[in-house]
Design a protein around this nucleic acid. Structure first.
Lengths: 215, 215, 215, 215
DNA sequence: AATGAATGAGTTTTCATTCAT
DNA sequence: TATGAATGAAAACTCATTCAT
C-alpha cells in the first residue's frame, strides 16, 4: 500500500520495520547459501540494499542476526503446524496428513534444513540461548501421542509406538532426502531433485510410515 | 616397518606418509567441528603439529584437502558395507543387519554427517568432481534390491518397495537423529544424546522399517 | 525554578541548560577515562541520558565538546585560585597555602591531569584556539612574583628565584605524583594511591619547596 | 654493515630481527604522536614499510605492541641509570648529576612521557601484566637512599628526607615541564620549548632540589 | 528541543596462500 | 621435505556525523 505523503518520491525512506525485514530476508538467503561462517555481513547488507551498519543497529552482531533468522523459520514451522487441524480427523488420515505436510513444508522451505545444519554442528548454541524459542513449544508431539492412542483403540495402529520417535522419524525421512539430495544424486548418478523423483519420494515416505503402523 | 636411519632422534622426521595422515586426521576434525568455511588452515597444521605450508605441499589447497577428507569417510563407509556379508542371510535378517550397522556406523563416526552437510549445501561440488568417488559405487542398492526380491518371493516382504528409497530411508532415519540431536534436544527439553536414548532410537528405527516391510 | 508545564511528568524535558550541563559532565568523565581519541560520542550521550544528536546540536562536534570540557576545568582552577586570598598573608604562609591548595585541587579533581595530557600531546591545539581561555589569565604568577619579592625583603626567602618556574615546580611536584601513580605504584611495588601515602607526599612537597626558598 | 651475500640485490629481505625492530620503531613514533587509542596499526605498518599482518605475526595485537614499546623505553631508562656511576661521587655531586641526567634523558626522549600518559590513564594495565618490567627494578631508589645517608653524615644534607619521594620529585620537576610545555606555553603566552627556556628550567630544577637539601 | 534511523569511511584483525631458505 | 616470513584481500565491527521526523 503506497504511502499517503504525496511529495515523498523515494519509496520507504525511514521505515524501520521494512528495513529490519529486508535485512532478515537477505540474511536468511545468505546464511542458507553459505552457512553461518561462510555468510558475509557485507553481502547481507548489499542484498537488503541497506547500509551495513544497520545490521549492527538492528541486531547487534552476526550471531544475533543468525538467531533471528532461526527464530523466524521455527515460527514458520509452528504456524504451519497450528494450521494442520488434525483433531477431528480419523487416526490414519491424521497421520497421513502430518507426514505429507511435513514433507511439503521442507519442499517449500529448503533453507530450513541448511540453516539448522550449522546450528546443530555448533551444539544448538543459539537455539539454547533463545527465550523466544523456549516459548515456542511444538504442539505436535502430544498431538501425535493422542492420535496413536486413538488409532490403537480403533484397532488401526499397532501398540507401543513412541510418539517422540515417530515424530522424529517422520521428519527425518523427508529431511534427509532434501538435505542430502546433491550427494545422493552424485553417488547414485541420478538427479533426485526432479519433480517426479520428489513425488516418488513423498509417496514412499507416506507408505513406509503408514505400513509400519499397521497392527 | 621401523626406520633404519639411526641418527635421527626425533621420530617421524621426513616421513611423508605419516605427515600426510596427520594432516588428514587433523583436517577431518577441524572440518567436522567448523565446517568448510569455518575451518582454518592454520589450525589444521597446528593440530597436525606440522608446518602450514605442508598442507599446500601435499594437497594443493584447502578445497582439495576437504575433498581428500570426504574421500576418506566415503571409503570408510564402503569398507564397512563390504564387511556386511548379507548374501547368505535370510531376507529379514539381512535387512535388520543393514539397518543396525547403518545406525552403528553413524554412531561411531558422527563427523561423517557434519562433513557431508557442507558438501550438500555446496551442491556436492567436490564429490561430483572426484574421480575416486565415482569409482566407489556402493554395492548396497543392488544388494537391497535382491534382498527385497528374495523377501517378496519368500512371502515375508510386501511388493513394490523401491530399493533406492528404502536405502535412503534407512540412512535418513538414523542420519537425522544424529545430525539434529542438539536442536531436537533443545526443543524437546530432553537430552537425546544419552546412551539410553540412543538405544531406544536404534530399536525404534529397526522396528519401524521391519514393520513397514510386512506383506 | 520549578517548571510550570503541568502535563509533563518526566522532569527536565525541554531544559536546554540542564541538557547541556549533563552532556558536559558526561563528556568530562568519558574524556578523562578514555582520552580524546578513545572517547565515544555514543557513550557520552548514553551517560548523559540524552540523544546523540544533541551533542552536535549544542557543541558542534566532538572536538568542540572537548574544548568546552577543557574550558570548564580551567575555569575551576581559576576560581579556586581566586579564592586563595594570599594578599594579606606573610610570605611563608602564602607560599605554603599555595602549595597545599595546588596539591589539594589535583587530589580533588584527578581528571584535570588526564584531560590535559591529550591536549599537550596534540600541541595544545584546542587551548590555543580558544578565546575564552585566552581571557582567563591566571593571577597567580604575578602574585607569586610579589610574594617572593616580599619574602626576599623580609629576609625569609633567598634571592633570584624565578616566579614562573617556581609556579611550574609547585604544580609539577603534585601533578607528576597524581598523573603517574599507577606506573609508579607498579614499578615500586607499592600502592601510592592510599590516603597515608598521599598525606606523606603532600608533606614532602611542602617541605621541599619551603626548604628550597630559605636564604 | 652490508650483507656479504653478493647476489642479493634487494636489501634485508627475510630479516626477521630487522623487521621486528622497524615495526617497534614505527610503533613508538605512532603511539607517541597519537596515543594508544589514536594510533593506527595501518599507519605503523606503513611507517615501518612492511605488511600490516606482520604486526600480528610478531606481536600478537595492538596492545601487545604497545607493551613492547613500553618495555623498550623503560629499558632505555634503566640503561641510562646504570651508566650514571654515582657511587664514587661526593653526595652533592651525585644528586646534582642525577637531577641533570634525569632532565637530559627526558629532553632527549620526549616520547617517554607521552607514552606513559596513556598507560597511567589505563591504570598501568600493560605494565602490571609484564614479566619483563617486573624484573627491571630501578637501582636508583636505594642508591638515592645511600647518597642521602652519606650526605647527612657528611653534614651537607638535612635529615629525614624520604628517598622515594625525592626520586619522584626529581622526576616530576622535569617531567611536568616537558609534558605540559604546550599548554603552559599557551597559558603563559611564552614559548617554553626554546633552548634558552629549557636551559633556564634545567638550572631552576637543579637549584630548587639542591637548595632544599641543605641542612 | 529532541529522537532514532541512516551513512560512509575507517579500524582492528583474520585468512588462504606464496616466498625464501 | 620442511620451516617461518611475508603478502594482499577481505572479514566483522566501529564511529563520527547527518538526515528525517
Amino acid at each position: 500500500m503506497p504511502k499517503i505523503k504525496s511529495d515523498d518520491i523515494r519509496p520507504q525512506r525511514r521505515d524501520p520495520a521494512a528495513t529490519r525485514k529486508k535485512l532478515l530476508t537477505a540474511a536468511r538467503r545468505e546464511f542458507a547459501q553459505n552457512g553461518l561462517a561462510g555468510a558475509r555481513v557485507d553481502e547481507i547488507a548489499a542484498r537488503a540494499g541497506v547500509n551495513k551498519q544497520l545490521v549492527y543497529h538492528y541486531f547487534g552482531d552476526k550471531d544475533a542476526l543468525y538467531l533471528a533468522v532461526l527464530e523466524w523459520v521455527y515460527e514458520e514451522i509452528r504456524t504451519q503446524e497450528r494450521k494442520l487441524n488434525l483433531e477431528g480427523l480419523p487416526p490414519e488420515r491424521a497421520i497421513k496428513k502430518l507426514i505429507e505436510s511435513s514433507f511439503d513444508h521442507l519442499a517449500a522451505h529448503p533453507d530450513f534444513i541448511v540453516l539448522l545444519n550449522d546450528e546443530n554442528r555448533g551444539g544448538a548454541r543459539h537455539v539454547r540461548g533463545s527465550r523466544k524459542l523456549e516459548a515456542m513449544h511444538s504442539p505436535l508431539v502430544s498431538m501425535v501421542s493422542h492420535i496413536l492412542a486413538d488409532g490403537v483403540r480403533a484397532g488401526v495402529f499397532r501398540k507401543s509406538i513412541n510418539a517422540v520417535h515417530l515424530y522424529i522419524s517422520i521428519a527425518g525421512l523427508s529431511y534427509f532426502f532434501f538435505s542430502n539430495t546433491p550427494t545422493l544424486s552424485a553417488i547414485f548418478g541420478k538427479d533426485l531433485s526432479s519433480p517426479s523423483e520428489r513425488r516418488a519420494r513423498r509417496k514412499h515416505v507416506v507408505d513406509l510410515v503408514m505400513q509400519s503402523l499397521r497392527p
